[in-house]
Design a protein around this nucleic acid. Structure first.
Length: 318
DNA sequence: AAACCAAGCAACCGCGCTCGG
DNA sequence: GCCGAGCGCGGTTGCTTGGTT
């Protein structure tokens, strides 16, 4: 019981659109509108599937579309809106839309495909790099602490070890690729104004690796030695010490997206606790600082209560 | 200079919903 | 109420491009 295909695939061209095809489609739609997508390709003289024409029009040819880079304000909007609607995909149809289309509706000239691609390729990584889970918009350290409260004491130790293992690769990648380069730049500019040898670079990488391996190999230092694990709070607190083993770029801030409130006080701040030792000038630090300014800018979207936001979105999209 | 790799983007696919007959 | 066509959505794929080795 297969679904009827939207067109005969044999006679249909696929892949990249040519400028001629774009012109044909644009001029046809300008004259006749987008009444019936199945008929459009035939009438416009295109060997394309109607669905393909619709996609090309809605994602690329529509005259009101904005092409090019996303601005920082747009990125703020996407992140903030995603934190509100990102986990509500099930109930969104009741609100008259789906996740990406709802978000795109708040960004004039951007399509859902644009927003989705930008999220998947850039923003997810950006948040991850800041130590924030792009799905829940909570700091990884908070998530780990939450999980830890549900586990028995021995499992917490294993979790911590596993977490360190999971983050190790990511952190090594970030640190060795970005931080080292940045440190090298700093050293070069500030101190010596000379070319750093490959030996120094390798040495720095080795130091970072060593630090991470130590963190993994010495779980006892992070765990209480003789206290009973009698309460969830204690477990969570202990786990935060485990989390403190992560570099500042991962665990050194508090993040409170609007959709989750702030566990009591309701403030919506993003408080970067900048370390005062060696890691301060790292790329990671820079990135988090950008994040900080990002969420405390003049138009501070984090200060919009989520309910107001949803109201406004439903109102505007209806 | 060539090969390889990763990121970004455009396009495709399949599923679910809506609406008209 | 049922059925099928059409549309829209999210997930995924594959091509292109730029950077690195």
């Amino acid at each position: 019981m297969g679904r009827i295909p939207c067109c005969e695939k044999d006679n249909v061209k696929r892949g990249q659109w040519t400028p001629e095809e774009d012109n044909k489609l644009s001029s046809y739609i300008a004259q006749h509108g987008t009444r019936n997508w199945r008929l459009i390709p035939k009438s416009a003289g295109l060997q394309r599937c109607g669905k393909s024409c619709r996609l090309r029009w809605t994602n690329y040819l529509r005259p009101d579309l904005k092409h090019g880079q996303f601005s920082e304000a747009e990125e703020q909007n996407i992140i903030m809106l995603h934190s509100v609607v990102g986990n509500r995909v099930v109930i969104l149809p009741e609100l008259g839309g789906h996740r990406w289309s709802l978000i795109a509706a708040q960004l004039p000239g951007r399509t859902d495909n644009d927003v989705k691609n930008h999220w998947n390729t850039k923003l997810k990584k950006k948040l991850s790099g800041m130590g924030i889970d792009p799905v829940t918009h909570k700091p990884f350290s908070h998530l780990m602490a939450e999980i830890a409260t549900t586990l028995a004491p021995p499992q917490v130790a294993h979790l911590a070890e596993a977490a360190l293992g999971c983050f190790k690769d990511e952190m090594l990648h970030l640190l060795t690729k970005k931080r080292v380069d940045f440190q090298l730049q700093q050293n070069t500019a500030a101190n010596y104004n000379t070319t750093i040898s490959q030996d120094v670079k390798d040495n720095t990488i080795e130091k970072i690796k060593l630090g991470l391996s130590r963190a993994i190999q010495e779980p006892n230092n992070m765990m209480p030695s003789n206290k009973p694990w009698d309460s969830a709070g204690a477990t969570s607190g202990n786990f935060s010490r485990v989390c403190s083993a992560f570099p500042a770029s991962v665990s050194g801030f508090e993040y409170s997206p609007p959709c989750f409130g702030n566990e009591g006080d309701g403030s919506l701040s993003w408080n970067q606790k900048l370390g005062d030792e060696n890691g301060d000038e790292s790329e990671g630090g820079k990135e988090t600082r950008n994040g900080s300014s990002m969420f405390n800018s003049e138009c501070d979207l984090w200060d919009i209560p989520s309910d107001n936001l949803m109201d406004s979105m439903v109102y505007r999209s209806s």
